[in-house]
Design a protein around this nucleic acid. Sequence first.
DNA 1: GATGAATGAGATTTCATTCAT
DNA 2: AATGAATGAAATCTCATTCAT
Lengths: 231, 231, 231, 231
Amino acid sequence: MEDNAAARRIPSGARAEQRIRDILRVSREVFAELGYEKTTTTEIAQRLGVSEATVFTYFQSKRKLCVRVIEDWYDEIIGAIERGMPRDQSTRAQLAFYVKTHLRLFLIQGTGLCALVLSEGRAKGPELGQEFVPLQRRYTAPLMDLLARGREHGEIRRDVPLSLLRSAILGPMEHILWDAIARQREVDIDQTAADMVAVLWPALQPADIELEALRAFHGEVGAALRKLDQA
Amino acid sequence: MEDNAAARRIPSGARAEQRIRDILRVSREVFAELGYEKTTTTEIAQRLGVSEATVFTYFQSKRKLCVRVIEDWYDEIIGAIERGMPRDQSTRAQLAFYVKTHLRLFLIQGTGLCALVLSEGRAKGPELGQEFVPLQRRYTAPLMDLLARGREHGEIRRDVPLSLLRSAILGPMEHILWDAIARQREVDIDQTAADMVAVLWPALQPADIELEALRAFHGEVGAALRKLDQA
Amino acid sequence: MEDNAAARRIPSGARAEQRIRDILRVSREVFAELGYEKTTTTEIAQRLGVSEATVFTYFQSKRKLCVRVIEDWYDEIIGAIERGMPRDQSTRAQLAFYVKTHLRLFLIQGTGLCALVLSEGRAKGPELGQEFVPLQRRYTAPLMDLLARGREHGEIRRDVPLSLLRSAILGPMEHILWDAIARQREVDIDQTAADMVAVLWPALQPADIELEALRAFHGEVGAALRKLDQA
Amino acid sequence: MEDNAAARRIPSGARAEQRIRDILRVSREVFAELGYEKTTTTEIAQRLGVSEATVFTYFQSKRKLCVRVIEDWYDEIIGAIERGMPRDQSTRAQLAFYVKTHLRLFLIQGTGLCALVLSEGRAKGPELGQEFVPLQRRYTAPLMDLLARGREHGEIRRDVPLSLLRSAILGPMEHILWDAIARQREVDIDQTAADMVAVLWPALQPADIELEALRAFHGEVGAALRKLDQA
DNA sequence: GATGAATGAGATTTCATTCAT
DNA sequence: AATGAATGAAATCTCATTCAT
């Protein structure tokens, strides 16, 4: 937008790259901890042991620094998932991998950064928000692929949109993490991941018409019975 | 703040209450749109067409105004759900009501406010956060009750913690809403609610109520019915 | 100065005068307690149980109200001293009365108001300051008269300016009162007044009335007395 | 204030110290002239020809700036007196030095700062007040020592508390200065100091019983005579 | 390349004062 | 005559950002 302004040169070279890495590392910490607004360039510079001006030598603005932090974080997650995904195993096993990897990566600094994306990604107009759409797409790609492949094998239901299934998987994970943070409780990653898959898997499978009908029948008879008892 | 000086009293009366409602309405809009930090009292006053001082005549601080906005919003949701919950219908029907009501209420300004609660609720110091814990509890109470009752009737699985099931329900809803907002896409509430229940319901079922058992139950109820008819 | 402005009518009548007295009484309390700046019209109105606007019905501004408070307080002190001064007693007795009356009157709300005069009386330019000069003059008049009369009788030294003697009397009193307030210590008025006079009196004496002259005077008066007795 | 965010560090170095000195010099002027409340950071910055933010770069708050101003002023006075006090000379000579030094130092900006200490030192909450108690003690220490030593030599009276004698010395000085300022009159320091000592010295000396009795006798005889004349 | 220092542009909050009712 | 309500005008303080050294 306004990058016509006499474009300050950003240093390059090995030393500069180390600097940039350091700044990003510390910035990620601070942004995750404090959120965008409460984070100050002063704080970042101080934790780094450099002057504020130095930070601005490498990043044009706080905003751009933040965007870069988020991008890098996404890249890490996406990379870890893309590299590790056991494509040759069962769909369920792949889902399990996806869930577990997520929980693990998020639990480190994830919630803070996640909040950052949610809060800042929204924020009036498309200032930041739109910058993340492609990232978000890449980020969910492995999951979408997984589900699409599952559908081909008949393991994943076709009666609802894929995007809804995606939400049914990503949503609970975020929710659990918020909850864990909010209550400052430890999370047993393996156990939680296993539980989540146990819950999610049935949600993804094709509807068993007969089973569902019988379950509904069971529920309704029970309800009718209780109604009668009360009367 | 806690100076010796007497605080000016907040006006009361019919006119004042209308004012308060107006301020709350507009503030809700702005907070939802911009988040806590980016919201300025100037903006709120301008949209209202009054001076900033007027806002401070009715609310002691930006912070308290925000708390009130969130409380009111929670109260609306909680009220709508508590009042409308069809307790005499089947557990599935209750879940459907819960999901649909939520989607409807959230879609108005929900995501913004939701983000508000999440972001501000976190925020290092428990400045705001702790004020919402009881609200959060009341807010999730109907769902937890619903699930607990479902368990008693054997309709809800017992092999994972209730809190995980709660996350499996609330998480996707939030996620869908974020998505809808982020892409600025319209949502067909009825259809989405129906799809969500279709997806979630199987996730909640006890794994051990199997097809055979249900068939047997069906058979017995059918037999009993015929017996009655003959008599 | 700016009183040309459409001169709002200040109510008059018995009721109005009572109101004015009430406002002045409470304002004196508050100003004395909090000082000019920290005093708010809100506080005054609240302690009175009326609206702020009512205060402004009777006094054009906070500033004028404050001036009036100070004037009234001065008037009280001046009145008490003028009325009570034992002009037919010895100069020392008159000084003692002056000191004691002062200490007593100041100790009630005096220090607060005294601070008020000092702080506000100074204050940039002659906004308030000059308004008090005539008061100050009236206020010190009894003391100046006392000293002048003393001089005529040869009881008060003539080698230093009267104004310096005045400062030597008023200064310590204020200082003692500040000290008492600052340390929040009770003051034994009678004892302190007696001590002060014991200290101040020698300071006021003519240096040239020496022991020998007084002895001679004493001798002569004694002789005269005996002569009379014999006759 | 005590947020998690790191505070920006206060610059140090030769240039910074000059800045600090400048800010303190100007602030002293303004505080002395206007008092704490009426002084604005805007005014200080303007007189300095810098932005307000610059002032806050060197002092965390208006309050702390003011405290520092007062401390520095006290330090100057205390230093000048401690260094210059002619301890080997007579008690009267020491008193003379004390009085003269005070008058000189106070006359520059003393009264304003004095008012500052008095007004702010009081002020309901001991916010500022308590910070000055130790200063006040150091400040009066040389005088108290002087008086105590004088007592040992039998030159200072023992019949009244030392604190009262202290007030009898400091009080008049402040009063004279107020007066000088209020009337915007020049003061001849040497003359005034000499006069003050002439007045104060007799006040401090042990009571000469016979002299006092004879003076009292003289006064009473005079009064009786006048009474008779009037009749 | 690094930084010390300065600052412009706000943001929240307070309060004396006014005016229609 | 009393007041409820509104507000203009400030005041303190923060922080991302720039620029000369």
